[in-house]
Design a protein around this nucleic acid. Structure first.
Length: 805
RNA sequence: GCCGCAGUGGCGGAACUGGCAGACGCGCAGGACUUAAAAUCCUGUUGUAGCGAUACAGUACCGGUUCGAUUCCGGUCUGCGGCACCA
């Protein structure tokens, strides 16, 4: 009897051995494969089984790429360590965030070590390391010089709990993405990044990415490109023009009123003496509303300014209203309203008694009593002067140009994407490297003076006034202007957490370079990322920002690719019972540490994958790991009991071996990792059975060991040696399928009557249809009654006899 | 409200391109081994009827296409995710 499976001993043994003789080495000849995990925020809570899953997936994939293709694997790990949680922790405990961050990093690094992943810790980066954020600041300076970073005073999203401004992407349902507090508006001078300049490229280049369609669609929707026209309306009796944006210029004849956002610059000016008071009151009320109030208001409100705009097409006077359903910062902040063909305009017109003119015939006619807007762009134009009789769908496309030719406006496009609010009024972030000089304005810190170090501070407490805690450090704030040498003040806002994570993946491959962000040579050799693995929650935040940064760095010649992540895989979340997200406060966090101790790393790795399809959320159930552990024990026994086998491979054994290779490889390639594990179990059962009845051959056992090695590296390596091999199992080649071994002489075919299976028979693989049908009928015997009307034979699968009684 | 994804045994889930529904695992039941328990091994496990081979029903619901539908089409319900007055 061979020795029993002792996971602790084996795992310790190989962990040590791999440390001395690393298996993933760059000999300069092997092709590279860059497999990247989204780097974690080093939280004090440590890792739970959900974090593990992503890291296991990427490690399995890395090891597979190493075996199948002989790649040198770039598989780094680092720390996204700036940001609010560390700062809040520091405030609470009175400890410097740098200190708590360092402790957390050490702890999580130890936990990650338990996964036995191939991480190359020589490549490690930390966004809070001055040697790293030097380049985060450098990118900002470059953006400033290119006109992509600019200052602007405007009402921004403000989280009253985090006491900082937020980017649009960080506001979810009117609430702060981080803490869930209701987001309000605040007027602040902010640094902005002109991401909108890249809107078209960010949209179009999605086509060349091997990403989940879901994420591409989310980015497409977020960018929100629309096609339409700007139309100029003259204000009656005033020397003013109001420009509106519309995607439905075909309905221009149906515009019966116009609405301006209360923030529109003409809003107050349009008031007449009679309406002045009401208009000013409305503008004031709107300015007091928070995002959440605006979202919760179901009923439309508005006020008539007393002025009229002239529809350029027919000269009609249309009343100008103000309403907060029109957004100030989209399009021109003013819209033409066609109540007959727009739901919102219909609601508004109905409430305030404004005429409704139908200009597109529905089902060929004019509706007598309109109860809702007809929003389809299909039907013939009516009540539309020269445009009568045209098709709405055609006109919708052609109208922008027609309007442009007539001189009433121009063809244009619009985006939902807004520029990126980049200032945070918090301590724990990269200082924005700008100096404000009264004479020279905003001046960047000279590149050779970077990094601009984050100074020590007495209190990290956010001030809540819109100023960063850095503003209190007068001897840091007061400086000289790099431009004129006169007295000047430093920018005291810091960058958002996304700043470092938008480009960190470039730095891993050249993390000690203090002359360049990344050297040309290394960038060419090792970048971009071939496979990026992480949660879907970053679909429009981190993943959009990273694409923007990469495109910018491409434009200024730092890298010669303009998309950072060729392939993306989003793993699902591991949740507690009933799909509840694992969190400390819910008390449902499952720690991997105990499971590793009791079952071993290999078992936990496999179980992480076995719980469900990797792209879907899965509920964690501790009990299931027993099944994987039993499987590994049985597999261990199978190999150990037969390691000295002298059995020659039979035809049957060859077939099983090649089917195993084929099944596992196919499922791996399609990322169906849960069924890879069930496949292993199935073939393990089969081989145990064959071992008892006639035995198994050594080559089949070796093959199995190679296939399982990426999933259970320790047991794989140990059994590989037990089978008499001297080198590492990871330096061998992924086995290939011998198709000739899979050719059958006989096939099992289901015999059906009217599509219902009655029996299964064996037929020669090359049998022809008539013979197959005859064999099927014979097998059915007396079960086949009535008149046969049709006979179907699908080679190797089905014989179906269609009979009528 | 709009867009996307999903709905299969007691549970997690499988089923390649329309071809034997429920692989694999958990749990459960029975048995073997044991003084006993744990571990391990064997057998069974969608429902209904039957001792039984077997028959019928069955992939959220209603309908359609097809020799044949978990898979394709139309409609309904439920759950999850994204967006949310974007003109």
């Amino acid at each position: 009897m061979a020795e029993p499976y002792n996971h602790r001993e084996i795992e310790q043994k190989w962990r040590k051995e791999w440390e001395i003789n690393p298996i993933n080495v760059n000999d300069g000849k092997k092709p590279k494969y860059y497999c990247l995990d989204m780097f974690p925020y080093p939280s004090g809570n440590g890792l739970h089984v959900g974090h593990w899953r992503g890291y296991v997936i990427s490690d399995v994939w890395s090891r597979y790429k190493m075996l199948n293709g002989g790649h040198y694997i770039i598989h780094p790990m680092g720390w996204d360590a700036f940001g609010l949680p560390a700062e809040n922790y520091a405030i609470k405990m009175g400890v410097h965030p740098a200190k708590s961050t360092a402790e957390n990093v050490a702890n999580i690094k130890k936990q990650i070590g338990e996964i036995a992943a191939l991480y190359d810790w020589d490549m490690e980066v930390n966004t809070t390391d001055p040697a790293f954020y030097k380049w985060t600041q450098w990118i900002f300076v470059k953006m400033f010089k290119e006109g992509l970073a600019y200052e602007k005073e405007m009402p921004i999203n403000w989280c009253p709990s985090c006491k900082t401004g937020l980017a649009n992407e960080e506001v979810v349902n009117g609430k702060c993405e981080r803490c869930g507090a209701d987001v309000t508006k605040k007027n602040l001078k902010q640094w902005m990044l002109r991401i909108t300049k890249y809107a078209d490229r960010l949209l179009n280049d999605l086509d060349k990415l091997d990403w989940p369609e879901k994420v591409k669609k989310m980015q497409t929707d977020w960018i929100g490109k629309s096609y339409g026209a700007e139309v100029d309306f003259k204000v009656d009796g005033m020397d003013e023009t109001i420009t509106v944006y519309t995607t439905r210029p075909d309905t221009l004849y149906g515009a019966t009123f116009m609405v301006l956002a209360p923030e529109h610059k003409l809003a107050a000016k349009l008031a007449t003496p009679e309406t002045k008071e009401a208009v000013e009151q409305y503008i004031y009320d709107a300015s007091m509303k928070s995002n959440v109030d605006r979202l919760q208001d179901k009923e439309k409100t508005g006020v008539f300014t007393g002025s009229y705009a002239i529809n350029p097409l027919n000269g009609e006077k249309t009343p100008i209203w103000l309403s907060d359903y029109v957004l100030a910062d989209y399009g021109t902040g003013a819209i033409m309203c066609v109540p007959a063909h727009d739901d919102r305009d219909f609601e508004f017109a109905t409430k305030f008694g404004i005429p409704i003119i139908q200009v597109i015939a529905k089902d060929g006619k004019e509706i007598e009593h309109m109860t809702e807007a007809y929003t389809e762009a299909s039907g013939t134009m009516i009540n539309s002067g020269d445009w009568n009789g045209l098709e709405s769908a055609v006109l919708k496309k052609e109208a922008p140009e027609m309007i442009e030719k007539m001189g009433y406006g121009r063809k244009t496009t619009n985006y939902k994407l807004r520029d990126w609010v980049f200032s945070r009024q918090r301590y724990w972030g990269e200082p924005i490297p700008i100096v404000h000089c009264e004479k020279c304005g905003a001046v960047p810190v000279p590149e050779e003076e970077l990094p601009l170090l984050l100074p020590e501070v007495e209190s990290y407490q956010p001030t809540g006034t819109g100023e960063s805690p850095l503003a209190d450090i007068t001897d840091w704030v007061n400086t000289t202007c790099p431009c004129c040498g006169g007295p000047a003040k430093r920018e005291t806002n810091t960058m958002p957490q996304w700043a470092g994570s938008s480009w960190y993946f470039l730095r891993y491959v050249d993390n000690h370079n203090d002359k360049e962000l990344v050297s040309k040579e290394k960038a060419d050799k090792y970048l971009p990322v071939d496979m990026y693995i992480g949660g879907v929650e970053h679909a429009v935040l981190h993943l959009l920002y990273s694409r923007f940064y990469t495109k910018f760095l491409y434009d200024i010649g730092v890298v010669d690719f303009d998309e950072p992540f060729t392939k993306l895989f989003n793993q699902g979340m591991i949740t507690g019972k009933n799909g509840i997200k694992m969190s400390k406060s819910k008390g449902n966090v499952v720690s991997p540490d105990d499971l590793v101790r009791d079952y071993g790393c290999d078992s936990l790795r496999m179980y992480e994958l076995f719980v469900g399809p990797p792209e879907l959320d899965s509920e964690w159930d501790d009990r299931g790991i027993d099944g994987v552990y039993r499987f590994l024990t049985r597999f261990w026994n199978l190999v150990m009991d037969n390691k000295d086998t002298k059995v020659e491979p039979t035809k049957e054994l060859l077939k099983v071996r090649n089917l195993l290779i084929k099944t596992i490889t196919q499922r791996l390639d399609s990322f169906s990792l849960n069924t890879v594990i069930s496949g292993f179990m199935e073939y393990n059962n089969k081989l145990i059975d064959m071992a008892k009845n006639g035995g198994v051959d050594k080559e089949t056992l070796k093959t199995f060991v190679v296939l399982i090695a990426p999933f259970a590296p320790h047991i794989g390596e140990e059994l590989w040696r037990q089978l008499g091999e001297s080198g590492s199992v990871f330096h061998t080649n992924w086995p290939s399928v011998d198709e000739t071994a899979l050719v059958d002489d006989e096939k099992e075919v289901a015999v059906q009557i009217n599509g219902r299976t009655k029996t299964v028979i064996k037929v020669p693989a090359d049998i022809d249809k008539d013979a197959a049908i005859a064999a099927g009928k014979e097998a059915l015997g007396s079960k086949l009654t009535g008149t046969v009307v049709k006979e179907i034979y699908v080679p190797g699968r089905i014989i179906n006899i269609v009979a009528k009684p």
